[in-house]
Amino acid sequence: MESLMQDLKAKIIVQLNLQDVSPEQIGDDQPLFMEGLGLDSIDALELIVMLQQHYGIRIANPEDGPKIFQSVRTIAEYITAHQKTA
């Protein structure tokens, strides 16, 4: 889980072109949207594509998005759960 979260942070920075942000600056439980990293709806679409592209995870129900993308930890948990079931 720890290495997956580190990997996710690095990929999020690249995918969203988060200039001046390093993986160490993103907390495991820090909210990604709004007051946290300040991501928005376009970033959410980028993250959905990122999960599909790099982890083979397709989000079937868009309503699950807010829960999945709450933080790096929730994304990592979702990946772990769904890669096991795949």
């Binding site: 995918q15 376009i42 679409l45 980028e46 594509v49 599909q52 592209q53």
Partner: peptide, 9 residues
């Protein structure tokens, strides 16, 4: 497939 929106937008 798996096209990201930013560049398109």
């Amino acid at each position: 497939e798996m096209l990201t929106p930013t560049a398109f937008i």
